[in-house]
């Protein structure tokens, strides 16, 4: 396992690059999600303020039917899960869902507890604290915002209905928007990031394989063939082309083989001379014996 050069080079590079890209992608996804959620909260807070401003005149002049109709119309908009206005006691006065009207809201429920957790009710909250996430009865994720309706001089001085000037909050607007489009965008982003990670993995592994094949594996294979031929005595073969180190190694190998071959030749010559001399000595010895 993992004994060849390609595997030894690919495993650490592939693991490092892919792992790091996955970490960065997860964090990038986390950042984008955080930004998109913060952005939708800001938009919803703005929408809440717009509704409060748009219904201000109806409230000031106590036009309840007009207010009810406005709330119903907004509630029918695509993506709006609920719109309701409740008074400071927590009784729902107006709602896009008629069944909720005159119902009492639990002060310890999410969306209420943020202001009503302490002994003194909080009057001002940051936009992020006004938001709450939940899943509705249809299983759809919802992001809801509660916007306080503050007392104004016109409210306490109005002739039609009276609010004491020391009352800071007269009621609360609660609007919930479906999170389905946001979650759909995040799911698309997730798929794109997974594809990106796979592409990085393929490119990294492919790039390393291609470079190794071209610069290392092919020249090494040629060098093995060259060494095989030279060791069989074929010195006519050309050195393989490739990286400088491999060419130098092939040249050295060829020189070594040539010297070895020359040494063999000279040894053979010496052996021949020795054989000739031995033969001559024997012939002389035989001639000497026959002469005697």
């Amino acid at each position: 396992m993992l004994k060849n050069l390609a595997a030894k080079a690919i495993v650490p590079v592939g693991l490092t690059v892919t792992g790091f890209v996955i970490v960065c992608s997860i964090l990038l996804y986390s950042y984008v999600k955080q930004d998109l959620v913060a952005d939708s909260i800001q938009r919803e807070v703005l929408l809440g303020d717009i509704i409060v401003k748009a219904t201000r005149f109806s409230m000031l002049t106590d036009q309840r039917e007009s207010l009810r109709q406005t709330i119903n119309d907004i509630g029918e908009q695509k993506g709006v899960e609920h719109v309701r206005i409740f008074n400071k006691k927590g009784v729902i006065m107006f709602s896009s869902n008629d069944e909720e009207v005159n119902q009492l809201v639990d002060m310890s429920a999410p969306g209420c507890i943020e202001c009503h957790s302490g002994p003194v009710t909080a009057v001002h909250l940051g936009p992020m604290d006004q938001a709450r996430n939940f899943v509705n009865a249809q299983g759809e994720p919802v992001l809801a915002i509660t916007t306080p309706i503050y007392n104004e001089p016109n409210c306490s001085n109005g002739g039609c209905h009276f609010h004491a000037p020391d009352e800071k909050i007269l009621g609360t607007l609660d609007i919930g928007m479906s999170q389905a489009p946001l979650l759909k965008s995040l799911a698309t982003l997730r798929v794109r990031l997974v594809i990106f990670c796979l592409m990085v993995l393929v490119l990294t592994v492919g790039g390393v394989i291609a470079l190794l094949q071209r610069n290392v594996l092919l020249p090494v294979r040629q060098l093995v063939y060259f060494a095989d031929q030279v060791s069989r005595g074929n010195l006519e073969i050309n050195e393989p082309e490739g990286t400088e180190e491999l060419v130098s190694l092939a040249g050295n190998f060829k020189r070594l083989a040539r010297r070895n071959l020359e040494a063999d030749d000279s040894l053979r010559d010496l052996q021949d001379k020795l054989d000739t001399l031995t033969r001559q000595i024997r012939e002389r010895e035989i001639g000497h014996k026959s002469g005697n």
């Binding site: 993992l2 030894k8 495993v11 650490p12 693991l15 490092t16 892919t18 792992g19 790091f20 996955i22 970490v23 997860i26 964090l27 986390s30 999600k33 955080q34």
Partner: peptide, 24 residues
């Protein structure tokens, strides 16, 4: 909850590479 997988992926990569380095 939001960042568990980032730490997990980083840890798995680092520990796997450490193991590979030691093993080789």
């Amino acid at each position: 909850d939001a960042n568990f997988w980032a730490v997990f992926a980083a840890g798995l990569t680092i520990m796997a590479l450490e193991h590979y380095q030691m093993w080789t």
